[in-house]
């Protein structure tokens, strides 16, 4: 589904990604972990070209998204993204947030978009908030709406960039629950996270990045019980 070949990304003279190669299969849930500054968010943001790779190749489905000729807008329709700070549109109600892109980008009818939107809201447990503005929601509720908004485009892949890092501790669980049930539907997911328990329980694979390098790529059971590299050991010692 996603194939990344020798991905490099530099910001000015700072090289953040130093040649990352990996692939993510259809329906796979991949947790991307590592210390801050390891390049894990940059890696994720390259997957929908919010960051333009300096070199390397990224193929999603049949599209080589790093090819200049590829219509990146079309690719983004198929790649949903959830941000650390939600980024809901504050001037739109919850339902408008969810239906905006299906209406304006996909061009489906209003009734269809709203029906689908309400179903998604039900799925994330926020049916009663459809007509509220985001400012009236808690952090956990905002993030669940953000997930529903991304799902409304029926993406084939979902990217999560530290989705629970900006939340109060008591709200982390409700968001992880939604993500867990999404994983069970067979959605392909790439998740940058600091939630080790969640990674261990839900992910099929863990990618451990450090210093812009993919240091380990292993199933969670293996990674958490017997990490191969000393860097991963050090990191886990600090986290667990």
């Amino acid at each position: 589904m996603i194939n990344v070949q020798n991905l490099h990304k530099s910001f000015g003279r700072l090289e953040v990604l130093k040649g990352i190669s990996t692939s993510i299969k259809n329906g796979e849930v991949v947790a991307i972990i590592g210390p801050s500054g390891s390049g894990k968010s940059t890696f994720l943001r390259c997957l929908n070209l919010l960051e333009q790779p300096t070199s390397g190749k990224i193929i999603i489905g049949a599209d080589n998204i790093t090819d200049k000729k590829t219509n990146i807008m079309k690719v983004r329709e198929n790649v949903g993204m959830v941000f650390q700070h939600f980024h809901l549109f504050p001037h739109m109600t919850v339902l408008q947030n969810i239906t905006y892109a299906p209406l304006k980008v996909k061009g489906i009818s209003k009734s269809e978009a709203e029906k689908h939107g309400l179903e998604l809201l039900k799925k994330v447990g926020l049916s009663e908030k459809a007509n509220e503005y985001p400012s009236r929601l808690s952090g956990g509720q905002k993030q669940r709406v953000a997930i529903a908004r991304a799902l409304a485009m029926d993406p084939g892949v979902m990217l999560f960039d530290e989705p629970t890092s900006a939340l109060d501790p008591e709200m982390v669980k409700e968001v992880l629950e939604v993500m867990k049930s999404l994983a069970h539907t067979g959605m392909t997911m790439a998740i940058v996270t600091h939630e080790m328990g969640f990674a261990r329980e839900v992910a099929d694979r863990v990618l451990f990045l450090d210093g812009g390098v993919l240091v380990e790529d292993a199933p969670p059971a293996e990674f958490f019980s017997s990490p191969k590299s000393s860097r991963a050991k050090e990191f886990l010692d600090k986290m667990l």
């Binding site: 919010l50 079309k74 983004r76 949903g80 941000f83 991304a150 485009m153």
Partner: peptide, 13 residues
């Protein structure tokens, strides 16, 4: 800036 990114991520031109 996140507003722009959120819109981009949804494929909004």
């Amino acid at each position: 800036k996140g507003q722009k990114e959120a819109a981009q991520a949804l494929g909004v031109p």
